[in-house]
Design a binder for these strands. Structure first.
Lengths: 235, 235
DNA sequence: TCAAAAATAATAGTATTGCTATTATTGAAA
DNA sequence: TTTCAATAATAGCAATACTATTATTTTTGA
């Protein structure tokens, strides 16, 4: 992946590749904004078409239905996080520092800069937080998984699991810890904003520092690196 | 809560209390079975009415819509888990043992016995795993939270957080760990069944032992109790 | 430069969904 | 035995989730 160049996503997710046409890019752009505004349940292709001044039928030529569009957006997001992790950890050897950067990237992905004009990464991040798990909590999950619709998420989990294993060779749950870090990163931002009794962190004006700190605490406690071993934070 | 006696749930969740009439109990019973069969998205009151040989209009006299019915079922579930935790930890003093029992209860709630005729707890557990988070991932979460619709879940989180604090006074994230244990218990059963690359545990024929073991590992690592301190498992 | 092909827009239509309303029937309590 | 609440039966309506048809515009490549 590189700026201005397409993210590679499973072709089964769409009829026509939205990244290749301006109408397609408008669909991506406006669906992100509209889902964020009205929520995934209320969102539909008619409203999207009106919003982007096109027609329902034209949207349907790109995506079979709104569910596949959501999987598309979620895959896009994780692919993009994966890319950010790659460039941010490129010259880092120490696996502990790598894991710290991964955590920071998970939490602050939307603040990282290289941006693609038709994707508002910060709003997309909100969608992932609010609606992300709906992408794979359906009756069709097995079939869609077989077709590779969740490959981007699973690959990222593998990538992070590898770093976890580098930190602690004999840690028995690297994949579970990886996916748990993803879920916690999003869940606890959501909890802080909507159900604060379910967490201990606070989130205000897009400041997710406490979430980051908590994820570090969880990860490094589990991996048996106590606080003193970690280098001091610099920000 | 006691056997044969009603679970106490927020009155705003329903028009008419389904626990008080046979038609209401039929709604609960068949909605659990039907949601499990066809999934929450495909589920609606028309299909439910046909299934239970009643009418759509009659179902609407009990619940405003399927979303509130889902919150009702989810609240029922957590209230029931909370009750099981209470009776299972009643005479236990040691907070570590308490936490172990809590974890076992979270994972094996559906196997615990005291049952209510019109609720198939094991199928309800599957619904919570598959659809549970949809109850609070909506645009109306703040309003519904204000009305107390998630009180059962939050109270349980507080109860578990208190035990966590008893285990380790200065643990900085008791609520987050509590809610994370709930989420992990369900998520990793789901992952094991549908997206196994996102976890390290296996689940076969309703045997969740590996999930339980993992949650214990996570909880007690975080709370700084290493394996040797825990009493040996007996099963 | 123009003809063919492809993409999009405009419009319409259909089956299903998510309700509400009306009336009829049953059944239980006073 | 009336009466009152609960339920059933039926209808209907606006919105949703699409599909189909045709018209128009844009692209492309000979």
């Amino acid at each position: 992946m590189a700026i201005g160049i397409k993210v590679t996503l499973n072709k089964g997710l769409f009829h026509r590749d939205p990244q290749e046409t301006t109408l397609g890019q408008k669909i991506i752009k406006h669906s992100i904004l509209l889902i964020d505004e009205i929520g995934f349940e209320a969102f539909n292709f008619k409203k999207l078409a009106i919003r982007m001044k096109s027609t329902e039928a034209s949207v349907y030529r790109y995506f079979e239905n709104k569910h596949l569009l959501l999987i598309y957006l979620v895959s896009w997001y994780w692919e993009w996080v994966s890319y950010l992790i790659d460039i941010n950890t490129m010259n880092i050897q120490d696996p502990k520092r790598k894991l710290k950067i991964i955590i920071k990237t998970l939490v602050y992905a939307s603040k990282d800069n290289p941006s693609i004009e038709y994707v508002n990464e910060s709003v997309l991040h909100k969608i992932i937080i609010d609606e992300g798990t709906k992408a794979y909590h359906t009756k069709s999950v097995d079939e869609e998984n077989r077709e590779g619709f969740f490959i981007n998420y699973k690959k990222l989990a593998q990538k992070v699991a590898d770093v976890i294993t580098d930190v602690k060779q004999d840690f028995p749950y690297p994949h579970a810890l990886a996916s748990n870090l993803f879920e916690m990163a999003n869940n606890h931002i959501y909890f802080a904003l909507h159900l604060p009794r379910l967490t201990d962190v606070k989130v205000e004006n897009d400041n997710f520092d406490e979430v980051e700190e908590m994820l570090e605490y969880f990860a490094f406690s589990l991996l048996g690196c106590n606080e003193k071993e970690n280098e001091p934070k610099n920000h």
